[in-house]
Design a protein around this nucleic acid. Structure first.
Lengths: 122, 122
DNA sequence: CTTGACCTTGACGTCGGTGTCAATGTTTAC
DNA sequence: GTAAACATTGACACCGACGTCAAGGTCAAG
């Protein structure tokens, strides 16, 4: 299948698909005319990329998941490298949440200080 | 005082001070030779900018606070416009926290699904 | 006079995942 | 045959708060 079809089936723009390939996450055979030729399995790979991006992973983070799928695993997360990324990501998210809560407290405190009459819910 | 002194006293780079001015947040008289000439009150203004940036405000968000200070208020947050920014910011932070918590749950769920033996604390 | 510390403006680089456009080649349908 | 829809690569634009470098003007100390 050509890039347009893969784009339509995955809901991902051709531009993004080329970008993924440029960064070594996707690969495509080339037809005689130079057009990219994708297989059915690429639909799954693109879906994996999008699923991970949507929960805040970077493109680079998705690499081990794709490798895992290509090695024949049924889910991209069932390899040791992927699990490591999961755990690192959870740590990062937890850290972000902590930072945000701290910031929220600071902002609320500043507000309370400069506007004593203003109540802050939460 | 010239930009170097203000930079040293506030801990903010000359580059940043010029950037603030470029965006209309700071203003300076000019000496005969073209050098910027700051007053004592600018130290306070820069401090206000940094305090707000450090808790996640954008530069644009700081504008009403600076206006408030320039109008003679003792704190940048004691004007109606500033309070509005505070409240909007709190909403944004709350929304970010909600989004992060949701993402955390999704990641944890994906991990649990692809690696049933992996426990996730939290 | 010269060195060096300071100032000026202007412009490019950063980070990430695209959108968009340009210039060109290919395939498909009429 | 030709137009429309598709493909290719390459490159610029975006967002935000700067860092950094370039090329030059200014000023005090030696």
């Amino acid at each position: 299948m050509r890039i347009g079809e893969l784009a339509e089936r995955t809901g991902v723009s051709p531009r993004s698909l080329r970008y993924y390939e440029q960064h070594g996450l996707l690969s495509a055979r080339r037809a005689a005319n130079g057009y990219r030729d994708y297989g059915e399995e690429d639909v799954r790979l693109v879906a994996e990329i999008r699923a991970l991006l949507s929960v805040g992973f970077t493109l680079e983070d998705t690499r081990p998941f794709l490798d895992c799928l290509r090695r024949g695993h049924s889910t991209g997360g069932s390899c040791a490298e992927s699990v490591e990324v999961y755990e690192r990501k959870l740590k990062e998210i937890d850290e972000e949440i902590r930072a945000l809560l701290a910031r929220r407290a600071e902002v609320a405190a500043q507000l309370a200080q400069s506007c004593p009459g203003c109540f802050v819910k939460g």
